[in-house]
Amino acid sequence: MQLFLDGIFLGSIYALFAIGFTLVFGILDRLNLAHAAVFTAGALVGIEIVTRLGVPIWLLIPLVLILGAVLGILIERIAFRPLAGRHDAHFAGLISSIALGAIILSLMQAMYGADTRRFPADAFPQARVEILGATVSLLQVVILVISVSLMIVLTWLVAKSKLGRGMRTIAENPHAAAVLGLNVGRISSTTFALSSALGAVAGVLFTLNVNAASLGIGHAVELKALAVIVVGGMGSLPGALIGGLILGVAEVLAVNYIGSSWRDMVAFGLLFLILILRPQGLFGARKTREV
C-alpha cells in the first residue's frame, strides 16, 4: 500500500507534466521540447520566490501558473508561430523549441547558477498522516490534490468551454477554423499558455516531492512524459492522467523489486511495447490515412 501510494504521488506529477505536453500535441500537432525548460524554470523560480519572499504554498502555485503561462506565450510566439505554413514545420518546431529551451535554461543558469537548489527546510508543513496503514506526508496529499484539481479543470475547459471548442476545432482543421472566424493565433497562444502553466507547476510540485532542483531535472521528466503520453495515447488528456499514474506506480514497484538501476527501463520498456502493440495508445484514436 505504501508503495502504491508513493507511486500515485509520483505519477500525479508525471501526469501533470504530460498533460501539458499532450495538450499542445493533441491540438496543434506539435511536440514542444521547451516544456522541460519550463518545468525547470518553474521549480527554480518557485524556490527563489519562497526563499526571498517567504510566500506560503497556496500563493506560490498561482504565481508559478502565471510564470508558466507567460513562458508558454513566449514559446509559441518565438519558436512556433514563425514556422506556420512551412512544409517542415514539424522538424523545425522540434529544433526551434529545443533551441528556445536551451536559452531558457541558460538564463536560469545565469540567474541561479548551476548548483542544486532546495526549498527552505521550514517552508512547508512537515505533518504526516496515516492512510490505510501507509504513512504519507501532508505535502504529498497537497501535491496530489493540486495536480488532480488542475487536471480536472483543464479537462473541463477543453471539453465544455467555448475556448475548448475552439481548440478542438483547430485540432480538426486549422484552416477551416480560421475561415470560420476563429482567432487561430490567439487560441494557439492560449493553448501554449495553459500547457506551460501546468508544466511550471509540475516543476514546483516535483521539487517539493524530492526537495532538490537542478538545471537537468526537466530532461529526465521530459523523457518520462513522452512515455506517459504515448502509453495514454497521443493528445488524450485522460490518457495522460492514467498513463502518468501507471508509470509512477510501475516505477516505484520496479525500484523496490528489481533495483533502482533498472528503474528507467520500466518506462522505456513500457513505451516500446505500447508503440509496437498499440501505437495509438491506451486511450488514443487511430487516425486513418486519406487517399
Binding site: I78, A79, P82, L83, A92, I95, S96, I98, A99, L100, A102, I103, L105, S106, L107, Q109, A110, A114
Partner: peptide, 17 residues
C-alpha cells in the same frame, strides 16, 4: 558559463527560423 549556451541557442533559433 551561461553566455555560451545562450548565444548557441539564439544562433540555432535564427538558423532554424
Amino acid at each position: 558559463g551561461w553566455i555560451r549556451p545562450t548565444i548557441s541557442g539564439v544562433l540555432l533559433l535564427v538558423v532554424i527560423l
